[in-house]
């Protein structure tokens, strides 16, 4: 009998422990994506064609049509700007709140829990509430939501059409602003928690030493704390980025596609194309484009962190 070395046996066993995970993800992630890719290359653009199941390969036709489609073009711009401002907003609000809470004032715990609170509520619900808050009402006589609040506070000049606005500045539809605010509200608590955890993890001795050397608190933040928070920022960006690229529930319940698709996103278009218009192939193509967008963000990150691990 061959004596297998303890460590080798351990490795083998380790692999077997992973096997169920690998197999199930192999099917549910990679296999199913493959299925969707296959559909996206087909002519299954009606229920009856899907039912017949006769596979006719049309190559990239569904994709070409999609990129010529003005609605989809709008969606891509919307996704870009939404992601950009959403991430920026969550990061800056998150870090600001974390710094404020890290001062260890009385009542910090209460504030901290409060800022985390929105994460616990489903998007479907918060979407509805936000759609009320930013409903413009009929101006000037019958304002609603924020516009009404402005009126009560005597700030009529700030009244605006919010998510029904069709104004856009270089492809950035201003109607997205309320949606971005809602999304920031929901998830900045999460970035706050991550930053706070990072700040709390900093060795106090380091800071004390800096203080002894006469560093101002601003210097301490930028020279000591900020560099430590950088990897946190990166992973927060990854998490937020993939949430925003596939965002659906919140926008769907808050504004829908909006006038002239000003608040439309690929996930809504995919849902409507697939389930309303029965265009399964085109719907699959949208899903795959979404996946590719996510992959463009994620894969370099995954690969680089893998390389870093290897070099360690």
């Amino acid at each position: 009998m061959i004596q297998i070395k303890g460590s080798t046996r351990r490795r083998l066993l380790g692999f077997f422990i992973l096997l169920p995970t690998l197999i199930s993800l192999g099917i549910f992630v990679y296999g199913f994506i493959g299925w969707t890719v296959r559909v996206s290359f087909s002519n299954w653009n009606s229920f009856s064609k899907l039912m017949k199941g006769e596979y006719i390969f049309v190559g990239l036709r569904n994709y070409f049509r999609l990129f010529e489609d003005p609605r989809f073009q709008t969606d891509l711009w919307n996704t870009l700007f939404f992601t950009l401002f959403f991430i920026l907003g969550c990061l800056s609000l998150g870090i600001l709140l974390a710094v404020l809470l890290d001062k260890g004032l009385k009542g910090s715990r209460i504030f901290q829990n409060l800022f985390l609170f929105p994460m616990a509520i489903s998007f479907v619900v918060t979407g509805t509430v936000w759609s009320w808050i930013f409903a413009p009402g009929i101006l000037p006589k019958f304002p609603q939501g924020m516009n009404l609040l402005y009126k009560l506070l005597g700030l009529e000049s700030l009244q605006w059409s919010w998510y029904t606005s069709t104004v856009s500045i270089f492809h950035f539809n201003l109607a997205l602003i309320p949606v971005i605010i809602a999304a920031i509200w929901q998830l900045s608590g999460y970035t706050m928690a991550m930053y706070l955890a990072g700040l709390r993890g900093i060795d106090q001795a380091l800071i004390e030493a800096a203080k002894v050397d006469g560093a101002t608190s601003r210097q301490i933040f930028w020279r000591i704390k900020f560099p430590i928070l950088r990897p946190i920022t990166l992973s927060a960006m990854i998490i937020l980025g993939h949430i925003s690229l596939k965002i659906f529930d919140l926008v769907y319940s808050m504004t829908g596609s909006g006038p002239n698709n000003v608040t439309d996103v690929p996930a809504i278009y995919m849902f409507e194309t697939t389930f309303r218009a029965n265009k399964y192939a085109t719907g699959s193509a949208i899903a795959i484009v979404m996946l590719v967008m996510v992959a463009v963000v994620i894969v370099p990150y995954l690969v680089s962190s893998m390389k870093r691990e290897v070099s360690k």
Partner: peptide, 8 residues
């Protein structure tokens, strides 16, 4: 029509 039609 009412201007806020897209929110209703």
């Amino acid at each position: 029509i009412n201007e806020n039609h897209a929110s209703l």
